[in-house]
Each structure stands twice: as C-alpha cells, then as structure tokens.
Write a protein that binds this DNA or RNA. Structure first.
Length: 295
RNA sequence: GCAGGGUUACUCAAGCGGUCAACGAGGGCAGACUGUAAAUCUGCUGGCUUAGCCUUCGAAGGUUCGAAUCCUUCACCCUGCA
C-alpha cells in the first residue's frame, strides 16, 4: 500500500458576519506567513465592495488574497466552482511554502472544500428558468413522470425540486473531513453582535454604499446577482421612491442579523470547529495554530 | 354632560355565544441545507409534569349547560353634539 502524500495544512476561519474574521485572518497571515482564501460568495464578485465588507485595498496589499473579485456583478458563481478554485489556490500556496488560510462565512463553500463535496451537474440556466415558472405541484408531477425518487427532499422548497430534476435524481457525495485542517470559529455575544452590525452598516453608509448600489443598478439592472445580496437588495424601494434611506438601513441591519443566525446554525453542526469568543485573544489563537502546525 | 366607537398574547391586528390558547402580519427562538447558499425552505412562539392539564382576551360582577364574544358597573383612550 502506497502512503498517501501528506496533505498541505489548511487553517480555516469561520463565523457569522461581522465577527471579525477578516482582521484576525490578516493578523495570523502576517505572523505565520500565510495567504488568504476568501470563502465568501459575495466578495467573489467585482464591483460589490462596500456592501460585501470586502477586505480593503490596504488589507489586500498587506497579505495576498485569493478568490476575491473573480466574477462580474452579473455573472453566476457557485459552490462547485469555488471548490475547484479554492483547491487550486491551496495547492499553489503550499507549493510556495506558505500557509493557506481559508476565511469565510459561506458555510456551503467551506464545507465543499472540507468534505470534498461531489457536486452534481450544473443544470442549464434557460431550463432552470422554465422550471421556475412551474408551481411546486407541477414540479412534483414532472418528477413523478420522470420516475424520480423524492427521498428526503422538502417538497415545499421549489429550488430543491428543481435541483432534483436537474440532477436526474443523482445523489451527491461527501467524504470524511479533510486531514491536516484546523478550523477556528469566531462567535459574538448576541447583543454585542447587534451593536457591531449596526456600526458596520453605518460605516458602509458613510463609505458610500448608496452610490455603489446606484452604480450597479444603473450598469447591470436590479436583476443582476450582485444586487441580490444583503446591503444591496434592500435599496430597491429607496431608488423606486417608495422607501426612505432610513428604512433601507433598518432592513439591512435586520437582514444581516438574520444572515448571521443562519451562519451560526450552519457552523454549529460541525463539531470540529474550535470556537473562540470575541473579541479574540490573539495570542491564544496563535498558540493554537502553532501547535497545530507543529504536528 | 349627552350620544357613539374602542381596550385581544412582545407589537400591530382578526374574532362578535360553543369547532378559541384564540386567524393573519411583524418581531423573537430553533432547524434544514451538496453547481442560486448574503439564496431557498421548515417548525415553534401563554404556562406546565405537553396525545393531557392549568391560566388568559382593560377590571369587577352577572346571564348561560357554555362567554374574548351578551348584560351591568368602573377605569382609560378616540369621535360627534354641547
């Protein structure tokens, strides 16, 4: 039996939005000679900078970042593509003798890499739009006609029904968690997180979020992918004249907190994550990482 | 002062004698998640020893087999006439 080549070490930093992942990742990368891979479905998009809390120019200059700005505002980007690019980046980084630090709050993207998800066929965009016109009832009928097994699929969730048809009932795969991987999770106290999110949103407003949104809407239209995210979609009413900027702000804060909840729920089930309460004790984390790298 | 309208769970708001622990919305809590994932979807939301029991619909009485729903008085709010 041939010994499997030693997997390059991977440090992963996860946690809810606004938990301080970016700051920590840069500090660690500088101390440990690392490069950052952004496991984030929104910072992957060009021109959406302020609302996605994308690492600043200074931060990007301080430490090499990967998978930032890889698609246009109106282009599709998916977990499967992310997984491929992220694995390439990890390989590239370790070839250069650096430490890969994957940072992000998009649970599916992170897990795709950690568990080597076997993503299924992509599904044609046009066909998908057609299926989307159908009601769940009609989709179920179609599924029945195709002789597909429903299995555990939630029949009230249209997207899942459409995926079932697109993948022709194939079952996706998942492997044991990647070896040589240390996962650090950052967690805030609820009320503190709420304060942080409010401050962050206000910071985005000062930084010109409204103009960023206007620009994207003018260039790509409200249907483009970049304008579907939190911080962007909530402006639609404002630009249509039905809502005030204050209402948009409130909605953004609320949706951000809702997002944080879903992120927490996602990461909660991964028992390998080592949680740290924030604000973090950096020395403590550096010790943890150093111990991990020594083994 | 007289005549009307109102007071429902965290908030807004339905109900108009039994099928009401009470529609719906918001908010809150919890969960699912494999090529849209910042998406999409689900459950719970008076209390408890939770297939059952107990306490709720401004307050106190009353009518009734039975009341959030009807009657009386009181408190507070709104409107019309004075």
């Amino acid at each position: 039996m041939v010994a499997t080549p030693k997997l390059s070490p991977l440090l992963v930093i996860v946690g809810e939005t606004a938990a301080g992942k970016t700051a920590l990742s840069i500090a660690l990368a500088q101390r440990l000679g690392g490069e950052i891979i952004c496991a984030d479905s929104w910072t992957a998009r060009r021109q959406a900078d302020i609302g996605t809390a994308k690492p600043s120019r200074e931060e990007q200059a301080a430490v090499p970042h990967h998978l930032l700005d890889v698609v246009e505002p109106d282009e599709d980007f998916t977990a499967a593509v992310f997984k491929r690019l992220a694995n390439e980046a990890i390989k590239d980084i370790s070839n250069r003798g650096k430490l890969s630090i994957m940072v992000g709050g998009t649970g599916l993207y992170v897990d795709g890499v950690l568990y080597d998800y076997g993503f299924l066929s992509a599904g044609d965009r046009g066909a998908r739009e057609q299926l989307n016109q159908l009601s769940n009832q009609e989709l179920l009928k179609r599924i029945d006609q195709l002789g597909l097994e429903l299995g555990d699929v939630d029949i009230r969730n249209k997207r899942r029904l459409i995926r079932l048809i697109e993948t022709n009932g194939a079952v996706p795969t998942r492997q044991a968690m990647r070896q040589s991987t240390l996962i650090i999770g950052l967690k805030y106290d609820r009320s503190e997180l709420e304060e942080r999110v409010t401050l962050r949103v206000d910071g985005m407003l000062e930084a010109g979020l409204k103009d960023e949104v206007r620009g994207l809407a003018e260039r790509y239209g409200w249907d483009c992918e970049a304008l579907k995210g939190v911080g962007y979609a909530q402006w639609k009413g404002y630009f249509e004249g039905t809502e005030t900027a204050a209402e948009a702000r409130q909605k953004i804060i609320k949706q951000t907190l809702d997002l944080a909840k879903r992120q927490r729920t996602w990461f909660k089930r991964n028992k390998s994550i080592q949680w740290f309460n924030t604000p973090v004790n950096e020395t403590e984390i550096v010790d943890t990482v150093t111990t991990f790298l020594a083994n």
